[in-house]
Simulated scan of single mutants.
Amino acid sequence: MKIQVDEKMIDTDEQGFLCNMSDWSKEFAEEIARRDGIELFVDHWELIGYFRDYHDENQRNPTMHSMVRTLGKSKGSRFHDQKAYEKHIYDLFPTDPIHELCKLAGLPMPPPDT
């Protein structure tokens, strides 16, 4: 499947995951979010950035557990309870946060059990 982002045609699979991770851009994420009915705010972008950084450092996608453990307790976070932070993530991405974040961050599709 091809998605037009600005003047460039980007190859994705049927679910919108990039075929080539180097095609990722902020504009790509915005187009995917638009198609998926998500309005991106600061908290969304922070999570997208976290996913991209995590993947760069670990060569794998983060899990919900690693994300909640790391970001929910990070310095300056308004969440001190991991369950409250996980609820916040589900408020941002109600259906499947890990799946949606991987797609928006231009990462491979996560395995079904994450």
Rank of each mutant, 00 (worst) to 15 (best):
Y90F: 09
D53N: 10
P108E: 01
P94Y: 06
M109T: 14
E86L: 14
D6H: 13
G16N: 05
K8L: 08
E46C: 14
V68T: 14
E39C: 08
D81N: 15
A29S: 14
R35F: 01
D23R: 05
V5M: 05
R60S: 11
I38H: 13
L92G: 02
K75M: 09
R34L: 06
S74I: 08
W45A: 08
L92C: 01
S22P: 04
T95R: 08
E31W: 04
I89Q: 04
Y50E: 01
M67G: 01
P111D: 05
Q59N: 15
K26D: 10
H80F: 06
H55Q: 03
C19V: 15
F28H: 07
D53M: 10
F41Y: 09
D13S: 00
E7V: 10
V42K: 05
E14Y: 12
E86D: 15
E7N: 13
E100W: 12
F79D: 09
I3T: 02
T63N: 07
D43C: 10
E7C: 06
D6P: 09
N61T: 15
Y85G: 09
A33E: 10
N20Q: 14
L107M: 08
K8S: 09
M21T: 14
Q82K: 13
L18C: 02
F51R: 05
A84Q: 07
W45P: 11
L71E: 15
T95W: 02
I3A: 00
G16M: 09
F51A: 08
L40D: 00
